[in-house]
C-alpha cells in the first residue's frame, strides 16, 4: 500500500508523502493537481489519509465535559487550612471567622458599589494582628471618576469588615486593575 511504510518519504510515483499529509490534514494546496488527478498511487494515498483525517475530526468533535465535582474537589483541598481570627470568647464559647470570610465580606461590600464589576480583597498583614490592612483589586465599569469609585469601595469595605469582625481597619489600599 502506498503509505504502508512511513519510513519512505515518496510514493512509487515519486510524489512526496509529507506534502500529501499536509495537504489533507492542514488543507494545503496540492503541489501537482494534474498529476494527482491521474495517479492511482496519489489517489489511493489521499483516500486513506482523508479517511483517517475524517475519523480524527469526528473524534475531535465528540463532546467532552469535565466531571461534576472536579472543581469542588480541588477547592476543598486548597481551602483545608485557613487562618482564622477570634472574634469573641466568653463563657458561652468562642466565635472565630476565617480570613476567607473576611475577604469575602470585603469583596461583596465593594461589589455593592454599582460601578464595580469585580473585586478581590486580600489581607496585607497577619489576620490576627489588629488593626487590619486590606488590599482591594477592582475592575471598574468605564465612565465614572475612578478615584470617586475607589473611595466609595474603600468606605464600604472598611464599614463591612469592622461591623463583621469587630476589628478596626487601619487602611484599605485600592488598585483599579482593569476597566469593564
Amino acid at each position: 500500500m502506498a503509505v504502508s511504510d512511513h519510513r519512505q518519504d515518496r510514493l512509487p510515483c515519486g510524489a512526496g508523502l509529507e506534502a500529501l499529509v499536509v495537504q489533507v490534514f492542514d488543507g494545503a494546496a496540492p503541489n501537482d493537481p494534474g498529476h494527482q488527478a491521474d495517479c492511482p498511487h496519489c489517489r489511493a494515498a489521499l483516500a486513506r489519509l482523508g479517511s483517517v483525517h475524517h475519523t480524527v475530526g469526528t473524534l475531535a468533535a465528540e463532546p467532552v465535559t469535565a466531571p461534576p465535582g472536579l472543581v469542588r474537589g480541588v477547592m476543598h483541598r486548597l481551602r483545608r487550612d485557613e487562618a482564622g481570627v477570634l472574634v469573641s470568647a466568653d463563657g458561652h464559647g468562642t466565635v472565630t471567622i476565617t480570613e476567607r470570610v473576611v475577604t469575602q465580606v470585603a469583596a461583596r461590600s465593594a461589589l455593592a458599589v454599582p460601578e464595580v464589576a469585580f473585586a478581590s480583597v486580600q489581607l496585607v498583614d497577619d489576620l490576627r494582628v489588629a488593626p487590619l490592612r486590606l488590599s482591594a483589586r477592582l475592575v471598574v465599569r468605564f465612565g465614572p471618576s475612578l478615584p470617586v469609585v475607589a473611595e466609595a469601595a474603600r468606605r464600604r469595605i472598611r464599614a463591612a469588615v469592622e461591623e463583621l469582625a469587630g476589628v478596626p481597619v487601619d487602611a484599605v489600599d485600592v488598585l483599579v486593575d482593569d476597566l469593564a
Partner: peptide, 19 residues
C-alpha cells in the same frame, strides 16, 4: 465576574484570592 478577563483573575489569584 462576567466582564473579567483571565489576566485580572490570575493577578487576583496570585495575591491569594482562592475565589
Amino acid at each position: 465576574v462576567a466582564e473579567v478577563d483571565d489576566r485580572v483573575l490570575v493577578r487576583a489569584a496570585k495575591g491569594g484570592d482562592l475565589d
